[in-house]
Amino acid sequence: MIFSRLLLGCAMLAASPVLGHEFWIDPQKYQVETGAPLVADLRNGQNFEGITLAWFDNRFTRFDMAQGDAVQPVEGRIGDTPALNTLAPGDGLLVILHETTPSSLTYKVWDKFLAFAKHKDFTKAAADHAAAGWPQEGFQESYTRHAKSLIAVGTGSGADRAYGMATEFVALTNPYEPGFDNQMRVRVQYNNAPRTDAQIEVFERAPDGTVNITLTRTDLAGEASIPVLPGHHYLFDAVVLRASPQAGTSEQAPVWETLWAALTFAVPGG
């Protein structure tokens, strides 16, 4: 039985690039009390819907829970689903951090890469690809995921900060604080520096389950203010595309590398 679960988990992980794009942390509850069960899934999919991924320590480089400067690793066993299943720590804003090991996919059709580049607003990707002399069929992309989730424990008071992820959202406002004005302010970072004029894809799930998707951009400080609604859940997504450091080392080496930042949270009320 356990072996079958492991095989199923591996199969889902292998299939995930085909099934979807976004990767996020999906808490069962965004507001919990100290000492109460704290449960969250790792998900991969599209349109804020996706498959559940199990806990495999060879699939991530970081899986932590943080409150301010206090950071502790998420404990688990191979095949655990949900991937996070523990007790909530002390009162305050809890930030879940997850970074994956690299995975890869192959573009067999040039138009699929062009569609991806257009969707994620990589306007120079096609020209850079041609200038590098890379093939238009059968080339690979390496990708990693860099996800955060904001959970209120008790009052949920406190603040997010940069945690040194390769790319990440930093929440500049706390949606669980009293007086939250329904403007979620975030900064997008890459290599510990703000990403200016970066596209953010906003996935908004209403209480009835419908999902609305919009786009916005960061300003010259790498920041954006995004209107949000009480009772709704949110996934923010921002992607970095860069030439792979392995490009040219062999015919099988990836030529592109993508780094996907994600942030999930909920707005109380509604």
Rank of each mutant, 00 (worst) to 15 (best):
Y30W: 08
L229I: 05
G222F: 11
L114F: 03
Y143Q: 06
V239Q: 06
P230V: 01
L94H: 03
A238C: 13
A132D: 14
A206P: 05
S157K: 08
K124Y: 13
H129M: 03
F56C: 15
V202E: 06
F169H: 05
T258I: 07
A247T: 05
F63G: 02
I200M: 05
V239N: 06
Q31P: 06
A15V: 02
P135A: 07
R5W: 09
G156L: 12
Y30R: 08
T86R: 07
S104R: 06
A159Y: 03
W260S: 02
A83T: 12
P254K: 02
A261S: 11
L7A: 12
E141D: 11
F3Y: 13
G20Y: 12
T173W: 12
S16Y: 03
T101H: 09
D80E: 07
A171Y: 02
W110D: 11
A126I: 09
L53A: 13
D128L: 13
A70D: 15
F265A: 00
E33L: 04
L150Y: 02
V186Q: 01
I226T: 08
A152M: 11
G270R: 00
F48V: 00
A206M: 11
L150T: 02
V18Q: 08
R59H: 13
N58W: 15
L8S: 10
T258R: 04
G138R: 03
A117Y: 05
G9W: 12
G133A: 12
E141V: 07
H119T: 08
G270W: 00
F60K: 05
A88M: 11
L6N: 11
F122V: 04
V186H: 01
P73M: 11
L97K: 01
E137W: 01
G269F: 02
T264H: 05
P254R: 02
F56S: 15
G179N: 12
